[in-house]
Write a protein that binds this DNA or RNA. Structure first.
Lengths: 328, 328
DNA sequence: TGCTTTTGTGTAACCGTTTACACATAGCTT
DNA sequence: AAGCTATGTGTAAACGGTTACACAAAAGCA
């Protein structure tokens, strides 16, 4: 690897001149520029980011913490931030937290040790204090906190909407599958749905599940044993919904005629399920991109009007819910 | 952020001593150690990785290039490498290449500029020359090359197996959906399947598709128009298979009675499809982990017997293929 | 006791950049 | 022609660690 000194020697100038030419900072004679660039070309010189980063105390790296990219909701987000950041020459250091606080903290620490310019994170409430007193910008993604800028989606409306859909389409014995209560957005959508359901005169049962396939499958098996009369299920996410769908089919229950089912997230494969899954869509890619945009603004010290961006969710009507009765 | 000099001052020793204590290198009196550690504790000192990396010309970062984490096959791999690397304190710089050569090169360059200790990459044949003359280890993942160590899976057996399955179970009008030919592993499985099919006295048609959902959908729509008599489909991956499955269902074709379908990869949601998709399983997580293991060995200069690890694939029998006739 | 070895510590150079500062020269202005 | 300012370039000091080397004190040994 050629260094700036090699280039300087090759071009017969000082390192300062090379640096100035490379960065277009300060003065440099046209002729000198040419000589330097020729040397750069010849030696295939690429400035060492580490050295630059040491001096500037800022790298071109952004730290990204996501719970688990094995859940298709998150890769979508990750691409949103990567694609956006890429235009500005920023790269990602990435880590899965599995929603575990110690992993979150560990990653935050190593990000800091690597002089990241900023961080985007979906971290738990409690890890947020680790973001205090940082001199680099942080944007929360899919999570919120008073003190930090955040991009997230409208969980309340999402939960309400899911409930409304089943209610409007005639379900009266509804099971609400609640995800892990520690995960804020998941809890919020649950609460909103519950409230909505409670206002209606219907039967509501609550069951717990993790956000994974296994979790969903065990939960759903129990569900039909405990509440065989169920005619509507609101799942905490699409994965669990898919597990429910499979169980429904296995039991020969007709969907959406006997039972309606709605998921959450709209991850890509929901459209491929049979029947295609009705769900509440979160704009994951967009969320990632907007978080990245916000981070860039912070990095560039632009002042921002809004620091908390709540993106809208929408009902994606497919075939696990009935057509709404036309009003005449 | 406290620096080593702050700690030295606080502890009343020199920076060299602090460094030695922190790294457990060279001599240090028990008492001194205690004093230093107390200072470290008090100031919450975390050594700056960038400075360390500059001097050592090696960071604790590993570069990872994957085609697209939006395809569930890759996050699985990514977690495999992340989880394995984590034990050794290595972190990931990550980039999606979209199979584009310029993106691959761009990432390789920035990884180098950031003094990564090593790289793991699923890159195209042509990008491989960019790995020449590097003084850091590189491990190919899901791809192969003569010159580079690699962890991949047995595409040939996989392709053959897929063909064998349909053949043994009685399909005679088979469509083989070929993925992008530039992608080596995809091409290999295709070729192996084709050979196997050609040796049997069956009707074989080949169609092209990208590896994405959209690609699969358009391909599959055409498929049934062009070859309505098809009674077996070998898809280039599970996503395309899922698209095919949906089209089959939509057309009211019975599966597996009228048509058999087999996918490739065994990404997580295939089990959730209805009917659950028969497929060829690649051990993605394991592949990632083993690539990481290999990289670590390289980094630690351990000599290695095998540099090319071919992991076995397996047929996951679910319900889009018929039960094999029992031999009596 | 005197010599060698082991232990403990500090000074300063180095890793590869950026940039403050100094200085020289060219081009204007009056 | 003298005095500006604008332009062009180099020297050296950072950035925050690690480590080669020097040196001193303690321990081991005859």
């Amino acid at each position: 690897m050629a260094t700036i000194r090699d280039v300087a020697k090759e071009a017969g100038v000082s390192v300062a001149t090379v640096s100035r030419v490379m960065n277009g900072s300060g003065y440099a004679h046209e002729d000198t520029k040419k000589v330097v660039m020729a040397a750069v070309e010849k030696l295939n010189y690429k400035p060492n980011e580490v050295a630059r980063s040491l001096y500037k105390r800022k790298s071109k790296l952004v730290g990204l913490i996501l719970p688990d990219i094995t859940n298709p909701f998150f890769p979508e987000m990750a691409r949103g931030v990567e694609d956006y950041l890429q235009q500005f020459g920023y790269r990602l250091i990435f880590g899965n937290s599995d929603e575990k606080r110690d992993k979150e903290i560990e990653y935050i620490d190593t990000f800091l040790q690597n002089n990241v310019v900023g961080m985007i994170a979906s971290t738990s409430e409690e890890a947020n204090e680790n973001f205090d007193n940082l001199d680099i910008p942080v944007v929360l993604l899919d999570r919120t906190a008073e003190k930090l800028p955040a991009v997230y989606s409208d969980q309340k409306t999402g939960g309400k909407l899911a409930a409304r859909v089943l209610l409007d389409r005639g379900s009266t014995n509804i099971v609400l599958i609640r995800g892990p209560v520690e995960i804020k957005p998941v809890y919020e959508r649950y609460m909103a749905a519950l409230e909505e359901l409670n206002q209606a005169k219907v039967n509501v049962q609550v069951m717990d599940s993790s956000l994974t396939l296994q979790g969903g499958q065990t939960c759903v098996k129990q569900l039909f044993e405990q509440y065989p009369e169920t005619d509507g299920i609101i799942a905490c996410n699409d994965i669990v919904a898919a597990a429910a769908l499979q169980e429904i089919l296995k039991r020969g229950i007709r969907i959406p005629d006997d039972i309606q089912l709605i998921g959450y997230d709209d991850i890509s494969f929901t459209a491929l399920l049979h029947p295609p899954l009705s769900t509440i869509r979160q704009p994951a890619y967009e969320m990632g991109a907007q978080a990245a945009e916000m981070l860039i603004k912070r990095i560039n010290q632009e002042k921002m009007e809004v620091t908390h961006k709540k993106l809208p969710v929408s009902f994606v009507e497919r075939q696990t819910t009935r057509r709404k009765a036309e009003k005449t």
